[in-house]
Design a binder for these strands. Structure first.
Lengths: 336, 336
DNA sequence: GTGAAAGCGCTAACAG
DNA sequence: CTGTTAGCGCTTTCAC
């Protein structure tokens, strides 16, 4: 494919306006230092010809692209199902727009795509990349680091051999988890269980660590593995009730998991919070406010995380690369 | 932001390998017509220097980008909630990957974004655009046509003044709707109602037209406006039952709507399909197979639509621009 | 303030 | 086969 009709060049505009290419260039890029009558003539010529600068040519000399790639190493099916990601993307989108940068979303599904994405990033199409490294064993982050373009990760990357100089934005998962569990303990609960998230994601591991920080070497039977989905929450809650019928509190790795757990608790006739107190994580309003009872949960500002990722990337390599860990806050509702 | 360390150029590789730039270029681009020993030397130099071609420079001369933009004129929130879109995107993604093209997803939310997207498309970053023009009054399609790059629309664009030469891929919404309603009539149903989709989308309008094709000038009270969501389906079904208690069949504009309608029917004690037969549209498996009873519905191959859009775009302006309307098929399950 | 000239890094004829 | 030579369209010193 070869773009449609030949589009007018700077040269053409210059000829039409009776000035030099340099002058047109100046006008097109803000117009400082060009006297008004001339500038007006140039603008008219641009208008008449429908001139649009060729970005490839421009980038070739400026080495800037005013575009940022967002790389998601997940099949669309998952990406598009995850409200968490949508929120983060919105934050990114807003921040980039404010800096007049174009957001370029690169989806990868499978090995072949990795190579293409790596090539795209190294190829000089974008000024930087925002990468979601959702899984511990994802090879993409490594590939991207080799592309040697400024990169900010969403969530602490957990890939083995992670070098020290990666920049990421994350919530204080461990601290938030601690606060949740402490709250349960403060409520007088002494048999606090935990339903984990998918343990190939650092967020799940960190929350588990936070739980352990408070409970110490708790009986491992009080830890049930989930996967951040309601179904996983149900399954784990059942297992938990079967092996520890006297559980009196549950800290779930996220709100969806908690929602699943709540369903099972009701099904088994446990009252929440009287018999079993439940705390989630995320504070996704559509979930947390709709459950019965409304969910006490650890809030993280997801959209802000996205915004911050973009900001960190755009500020360039000037400031030393410092990751940011955002604080979380406990939101009390009815479930604990 | 200014890309990181200065990256090696063709020149550098040529110097290191002791050949000319042209030779390196040949090797890098497939290597035909370069004798093996030389080619090997070049490859080693490329390797050692970590050379990656500068795409801006390449595009400047080839006028190709091997990248295609997918433009979605919807806020992320909606895009990411819609499984329909995810499926289409998957089809596109696969087809583009097969042709070694990079998919660049451009999201727009609000006026400001439109300008940026238009600029991006005109700026020569991509070889073409795939555009989802979901709403009748969307200004984006018009803007994009002005960008004068090859474009294929997803779904018949309904914008006023639509020129004749737009290329789009769509399902035979009208024909599918006709088949559904005819099926209901063939079942002996004589009071067939319709719950529409969001009528600012052509797909909803076309399905309504198909319904009318069969029912003729039916009493307008048998038509209730929905919005493609389960909630809308519930609401519309209630209205329908209130004003036409003797309704014996419902054609819903999509499966989600049908699912909502089914809930209300059960709630009101109507048996499906004995008292009221129900047909949906889409055949989204997770929905259609999970309802009770399983949903009879009009299937469209959504992923194939995506694939086709990409194929149409990639084949270039060679073949005359012909839109494609894919056939639908009625899938019989339990509800009608 | 404005223009002339020199490239940015690469590919594509065209010679040899 | 390989090297030489022109640019692609734009920005950017540097003179005027």
């Amino acid at each position: 494919m070869t773009g449609a009709a030949p589009r007018p060049t700077l040269e053409a505009v210059a000829a039409r306006a009776g000035v030099s290419r340099a002058t047109v260039s100046r006008v097109v890029n803000g117009g400082d230092g060009v006297r008004e009558p001339l500038a007006a003539r140039v603008r008219r010529a641009v208008e008449e010809l429908g001139y649009v600068p060729n970005q490839a040519a421009r980038s070739l000399v400026t080495r800037r692209h005013d575009a940022v790639a967002v790389v998601v190493a997940e099949p669309e099916s998952r990406v598009f199902a995850d409200p968490f990601f949508a929120l983060q993307l919105r934050g990114i989108s807003k921040e980039l727009a404010a800096h007049d940068n174009q957001l370029v979303l690169l989806l990868t599904e499978g090995r072949d795509d990795h190579a293409r994405v790596a090539r795209y990033l190294s190829g000089g199409h974008v000024d930087g990349a925002l990468v979601f490294s959702l899984h511990l064993d994802d090879p993409l982050p490594g590939l991207i680091q080799q592309a040697r373009i400024p990169t900010v990760f969403g969530g602490r990357p957990g890939w083995r051999g992670g070098r020290g100089d990666v920049v990421y934005v994350d919530s204080d998962n461990r601290g938030g988890a601690r606060e949740a569990v402490r709250h349960l303990v403060g409520l007088g609960r002494s048999r606090v269980a935990h339903i984990t998230g998918a343990l190939d994601q650092t967020s799940a591991v960190d929350r588990l660590d936070g739980y352990r920080d408070v409970t110490g070497d708790a009986d491992p039977r009080w830890i049930a593995e989930g996967d951040f989905t309601p179904g996983g929450g149900e399954w784990a809650m059942r297992a938990l009730l079967d092996r520890c019928p006297d559980v009196d509190a549950v800290f779930a790795a996220n709100d969806l998991t908690a929602a699943g757990a709540l369903r099972v608790l009701r099904e088994r006739g446990r009252r929440v919070p009287q018999d079993v107190a439940v705390i989630g994580f995320d504070d996704m309003l559509p979930v947390a406010e709709q459950t019965d009872p409304p969910l006490t949960t650890v809030r993280q500002d997801i959209e802000e995380m996205g915004r911050l990722m973009a900001r960190l990337l755009l500020r360039g390599p000037a400031a030393e690369p410092a990751s940011v860990v955002l604080p979380t806050t406990l939101v009390r509702r009815g479930s604990a």
